[in-house]
Computed example of a mutant assay.
Amino acid sequence: MTIQNLYNFYSISSGIVTNSKKVKKNSIFFSLKGKNFDGNQFAYEAILNGAMIAIVDNKKYSLLHKNIFYVKNSLYFLHKLAIYHRFKLINIPIIAITGSNGKTTTKELITSILSKKYENVHHTKGNFNNHIGIPLTILSMPKNTQISVIEIGANHEKEIKKMCSIINPDYGYITNFGKAHLEGFKNIKGIIRGKLELYNFLKKKKKKFLSMEMILYN
C-alpha cells in the first residue's frame, strides 16, 4: 500500500475513522494503538460494519479479509495521508492556534469572526488537537473550504513542530505561555520553546504571525 494508492481510496471514501463502532459505509478504518488498546483487533469488525478498507500494522489481521491492508505503522500512514491531502489543498489558508490556555475558546472566537466573511470555514472539532486529532481534522477538510482554523495541543517539545509539518499553516496565533504539562516540558523554558515552534515554523516558511487586531479588522 502506497500513499498514492491510499489517497485514491480516500478520494472516494466517506471519510476516516479510528473507532470501529463509528464506521460509516465506505469509510476507511485506521487501526491505531495505545497503552491499553490495539486497533488492529477491530479491523475485521470495521469491514463488517461497512468500511471500504481497513489499515493495520499487524500482518496477521490483514489475512482476515481482502480489504484489510498491512502497513508498517498505521499512525505514520495516517500522518502521511493528511500531509498528502494538505498538499492537494495547499491554496486553502490555515490558521494554527496554540498556547497553554484558551486555545479552544480562541479557536471558536476566530472561527465565528471568519464566518462573517466566509461561507465555508473549516475548524477543529472538539478536542481533536493532538497527533491523532490533527491529521483527522486535516482529512476532514473539504475542497470547498475557504479558510481553516486548527488548534494544536502539546505536552512535550518538538510536538508542535511535527504537527506544523502536517498542517503547513499560513498563519499562527499563540494564546499564552503557562505552566501546563510541566511533566512533559520539564520547566517553563521548555514550555516557551515548545510553543515557539509554531512561530519558528512560520518564520522559516515566511508566513504570518497574527494578532487579534489583524483578525478583527482584516
Rank of each mutant, 00 (worst) to 15 (best):
N36I: 11
N176A: 07
H85V: 09
D170F: 00
S27Q: 06
E159F: 06
Y84W: 12
S14D: 08
A54M: 01
N91D: 09
I47Q: 01
N144V: 06
N49Q: 13
L216Q: 15
I94R: 06
E108S: 02
N73C: 08
A43D: 00
E151F: 05
L136I: 15
M52G: 10
M1Q: 03
K143P: 12
L202C: 10
E197K: 08
H123T: 15
G190Y: 08
I95C: 04
K60D: 10
I95A: 00
N155Y: 15
T2M: 05
V149P: 00
E45V: 09
A46N: 00
K88N: 14
M212N: 00
I134V: 15
G126S: 02
L109F: 14
I92W: 02
G39I: 05
G39D: 04
H79W: 10
H131E: 13
G178Y: 05
A82G: 11
I90M: 14
L182S: 08
R86H: 07
N49S: 12
M214H: 09
E183K: 13
T18K: 04
K186M: 11
I215N: 01
A180C: 12
G190I: 07
K66M: 03
I12M: 09
K22H: 02
I53D: 02
Y173A: 09
A46M: 04
V23N: 05
I47F: 03
G99F: 08
L32C: 03
N19G: 03
S140D: 14
A46T: 02
L198H: 04
K143W: 11
Y217P: 08
G50E: 05
I147V: 12
I92F: 05
G102A: 02
N91L: 03
T124E: 13
E119Y: 14
G172Q: 08
E183N: 09
L6Y: 01
I16F: 01
K206T: 06
K143G: 10
E151T: 05
I55H: 01
G178Q: 03
I188R: 14
G50I: 00
N187A: 07
V121C: 08
N120S: 15
N8A: 15
I92S: 04
R86E: 08
A43G: 04
N40I: 02
T98S: 12
Y70K: 04
N40R: 03
K25W: 06
I3Y: 08
M52A: 11
